[in-house]
Design a protein around this nucleic acid. Structure first.
Lengths: 337, 337
DNA sequence: TCTGGCACTCCGTGTTCCCGAGTGCCAAGT
DNA sequence: ACTTGGCACTCGGGAACACGGAGTGCCAGA
């Protein structure tokens, strides 16, 4: 059905189209890629490829353009992820190593990825769920208001202002903080609800309402915020790509955390590296865009995901290489800090 | 030189051009705005206005378009800031009131402003310089590593990881924290350097190297980070505006914190409300864009700035009204929290 | 100082035409 | 059974051209 040569033709079409952004014809193929056959033969193969939906011609008497299905086949079977050059790897390493806290790691990562791929990069903050409690701090801010700060072992800091039902003396707060920390130190975040469930019962009765309020906010923070933060960079690259159509839709999607979430989140077939091509992704408006995403984390736990978003006609091997590499390096940085 | 009627003509041109986005001719003006004179008279006035550089015609036999100088005159003398409707004000209030911490206040503000003006909104995080220390926390993270968390009265939380020269026992850290807090509680951030200058001398000699390290990072945090964080939203609105030319440049500027900083930062003539029109702003590439910015803060201290960025042909009265209103409401929220 | 009239200038649009790239098909060659 | 060269056909897109209309500048008269 699809012999070796037809696949070679498809590969050539994808590569040519990606680099020139123009429909590619049989003659050009025969010239540039030495396939060893004449244009006429290639035309026959192209007809077959089109028949099966891998390529498509915009109009009669134009060259062929890969379809989403064509790119899919290319990514799955016809290409190899292209590793970064040594220079690029060094650049990544030094650039990421300079970060002083989690915010900066994420910020640098997303910029790096955007620059490396010349596309829009998206990075999700490391999930809280897999990390553990390093410290809980309760800071009085006003008579009936405290600030709750939660510090995790991945360096993430969550903060919430809490209104208390009654005024509370500072030493009561201090005591509560001490108790909380002794309970929770090193506790996995997913175990927190269970761990604190019985806590109020062990406190003096007058402290219980306050403790309950604080704990409920703590739990809320864990579930609500746990992985909703996403940042992106490189929007300017959209303008460079010939995105003229649908640019608006893409920008809108980028500002919708929820949409981004889903795009990054749903995991794919290749281990660790997800590629979603054009219409494969669930959002109209992102018809013309592909997403290359990967999980990252400290050690082997996947904490969150990152990736890039670009036109379907992107250079998949290079992009996949960059995403994979950055994911790995971020993982290393997180593990080492 | 510019009598009353010529000014009225200019105003009419600006208003028409803003709403139609097409060069406006003498006939249209005479029809829509009842200026009480004939098209021919208007033509004479237009010739005078063009002579003095307030308007400009793209080509012979096209209508007129305001120049930057024309918009400037319009903003300074011909228009009145348009207050928001009651409904809009209520919407702002309820939307902002739901925020739980500073991050969320800023996030909501920027989105709100983008939606209200249908342009790109930019918000700078409240400056640290005018706020005071609420609490300093030092959390051991590893044997020779601690995390420094600084909480201010504006609800901002700054965090840094610090590598210590030597391992330090937890109780030494606790002591240092207590000393720090007793010194710094309520201290204005700009006074911190002075306040801590003598601190190491009052500590046991063995704690001094550690204290010095921590203090140097603390000071660094204050000066380096003090107001560099800026967020934006509403980039999708750029695509809707007919920004086709230069869109790339605008997106690039948006991702350059430094550029944004300067655009927002340089203060203007009107009290509190800065308008920079087209070529008035210092960056090529932002030729076709105007910036409307205002300071905001709790009470009367200006903590930071916010604003919107849009095509020069924006609706200045409405935009200025929205920016001013949002700045005020954010100030109220900050003061009240 | 304003107004109506008039000639003039271009822009943008629609039409037509033509070239060239690329195809599909067929018959002949290996 | 493939592959190949030849050939007629199809469109897209650019160049040339005409033309209507919106808008102007200027002038003479009120």
């Amino acid at each position: 059905m699809l012999d070796e040569r037809k696949l070679a033709v498809l590969r050539a079409i994808v590569e040519d189209y990606v680099s020139t952004n123009e429909p590619v014809g049989s003659k050009a193929l025969a010239d540039k890629h030495n396939l060893g056959v004449s244009p006429a033969t290639i035309r026959n193969d192209m007809a077959a490829l089109e028949e099966q939906g891998y390529i498509h011609q915009p109009h009669t008497s134009a060259g062929r353009v890969p379809t989403d299905k064509g790119y899919r086949l290319f990514v799955d079977r016809l290409s190899h992820i292209k590793p970064l050059s040594a220079a690029e790897r060094r650049a990544i390493e030094t650039f990421l190593a300079g970060a002083v806290d989690l915010d900066e790691i994420v910020m640098r990562t997303v910029r790096l990825l955007a620059q490396l791929t010349r596309q829009v990069a998206v990075v999700q903050y490391p999930s809280l769920t897999r990390s553990t409690v390093r410290h809980v701090e309760i800071v009085p801010v006003a008579e009936r208001r405290v600030m709750l700060v939660l510090i995790t072992n991945t360096g993430r800091v969550e903060q919430r202002v809490i209104e208390l039902p009654d005024p509370v003396a500072d030493d009561r707060i201090a005591h509560l903080r001490a108790v909380l920390n002794s309970c929770l130190d090193g506790c996995g975040l997913s175990d927190v609800p269970e761990t604190v469930a019985e806590l109020p019962d062990r406190l003096p009765i007058e402290d219980r309402p306050v403790a309950a309020t604080i704990l409920s906010v703590l739990l809320e923070t864990l579930v609500e915020r746990h992985e909703e933060k996403i940042v992106f960079a490189g929007a300017a690259n959209l303008a460079a790509a010939d995105f003229s159509v649908g640019l608006r839709a893409v920008l809108e999607a980028l500002e919708e955390q929820v949409v981004l979430m889903r795009l990054l989140g749903e995991t794919g077939d290749l281990p660790g590296l997800t590629v979603r091509i054009g219409s494969e992704n669930p959002y109209t408006g992102l018809r013309g865009t592909s997403i290359v995403a990967a999980g990252y984390g400290a050690g082997d736990k996947e904490l969150a995901r990152l990736g890039v978003l670009g036109p379907t006609r992107m250079d998949y091997p290079v992009t996949m290489g960059a995403v994979r590499a950055v994911a790995r390096y971020v993982g290393q940085i997180l593990a080492g800090s």
